[in-house]
Amino acid sequence: MNIKIIISIIIIVGALIFGATSFMETNIEYTNFSHAEKVQKKVQVKGEWVKEKESKFEAQQNQFIFYMKDENNHEMKIILDGAKPNNFEIATSLVAKGRFKDGTFYANEVLTKCPSKYEGDSSAVKKML
């Protein structure tokens, strides 16, 4: 066999293994708060903002603090590293990425899922008549 083909195969297999391990290592599991508490590693949790509880931006630390409940209605204090995310108030659901530590979930990113503007929103159309 041609030596170049052998080298190519080695390169390809090596690259694939490298890609697959990186994929597995950085894949952030979607889970709930109780599981996040158990594993203590970086996960993402989907849930809703608890509007009744306090939410504030601490400018000194550059932290946005709020409460979120996951799909099992488990409430958790979230400290987000950064400002209040865009569309926070109107989001129908949130995804917090981060890790659990000492009774608090430290998020480095919170994604907001907005109410779909795109499919028929009948109340909006009524308002504009």
């Binding site: 950085t26 894949n27 952030i28 979607y30 993402q44 990425k97």
Partner: peptide, 14 residues
Amino acid sequence: NKISAVDTAYYVTT
């Protein structure tokens, strides 16, 4: 059977 995304660190490493 669970939807999850890779961290942006994945792209930097690879």
